[in-house]
Amino acid sequence: MTGGAVTALVVAGGASTRYGADKLAEPLGATTVLGHLVNTLPPDWAVVVVGERRPLPRDVTWVRDEPPGGGPLAGIAAGSGAVTTEALVVVGGDMPLAAPGAVALAQALDGAPYDVAAVAAALEHARAHPLLVAWRTAALRAALPADPRDGRVRAVLDAVPYRLLDVGADPVLDVDTPAALDLVRRRLDA
């Protein structure tokens, strides 16, 4: 599983309630938060974005979860149906610096024994980040509940054999507040 054998599944259908505005549309460099993420993913990866269509600097496959707003797990379930590669990396659309971590996770999954279903980005206290995970596509589909609305992504991950990988602080940084967006902008200016 190398190069084009990976799809990025970007979950971008949330309501941005903690942020208070459409955080994915916030300006970041020459594009937006979502645009920066999509533009920095490997060019040979297919990209599936779950959410409302919006302008992006790259061609992607758009998918909507049914019903819209059913939560991240419903978005992952909807997006996984559009994936044709043997592996995918789930990425939160509000994680504009996630691309290097996504690549590292895909590489770690490629080198893992086949019974390892996923490799997740590690957070402190040896916890997995549920929206930065490389999955074997078949394993993810098999683990999804029949009705994923309002389900917990972490529960699906906890139901399969997975490994953790420390990808650093920047890839797991999500834009949930204006202060977090300011931090991302400072990281990009550095």
Rank of each mutant, 00 (worst) to 15 (best):
A120G: 07
P27Y: 02
P55F: 02
D59V: 15
R64N: 14
P43M: 13
D65I: 05
G51N: 14
G14M: 04
R185L: 03
V172P: 11
H125T: 11
D115S: 09
E52P: 05
V175N: 10
R136H: 04
L73D: 08
V119M: 11
G29A: 05
T31E: 12
L88N: 05
Y114M: 06
P171R: 02
R141A: 09
V156H: 11
G35D: 11
D110Y: 01
D182Q: 10
V60K: 12
G71I: 00
R185I: 01
L88R: 04
D110N: 00
E86I: 05
A142T: 15
S16D: 04
P96K: 10
A82K: 14
G51I: 08
G13D: 14
K23M: 01
V153W: 06
A104D: 11
V63R: 13
T84L: 02
V11M: 12
L109E: 06
A128I: 00
E66F: 06
N39T: 03
A179S: 12
R163H: 05
L34I: 13
T2C: 01
V47A: 02
A169P: 01
D176F: 05
P67D: 14
L165M: 10
W62I: 12
R185E: 07
R136A: 07
A112K: 04
A126R: 11
W135N: 07
G70C: 08
D182M: 03
R58E: 09
A25F: 01
V33Q: 06
G79C: 15
V172L: 09
V103K: 05
A78G: 13
D166V: 00
V133W: 09
T40D: 15
A128E: 01
L109C: 10
V184Y: 00
L28E: 03
V48R: 06
G168E: 02
V103T: 12
R141S: 11
D189C: 03
V89Q: 11
H125N: 13
A121G: 03
E66G: 04
R54P: 08
R152L: 15
A78V: 10
A159R: 15
V184S: 05
A121N: 01
V160T: 15
A82W: 07
G81H: 02
P178K: 03
H36Y: 14
L88G: 06
G93C: 14
G29T: 01
P67V: 06
V116N: 03
P113Y: 03
A46K: 01
V167G: 09
A99I: 09
V83G: 13
G81S: 08
V91M: 08
G79N: 07
L37E: 15
L9Y: 02
L24P: 07
R152F: 12
V48P: 07
L164N: 00
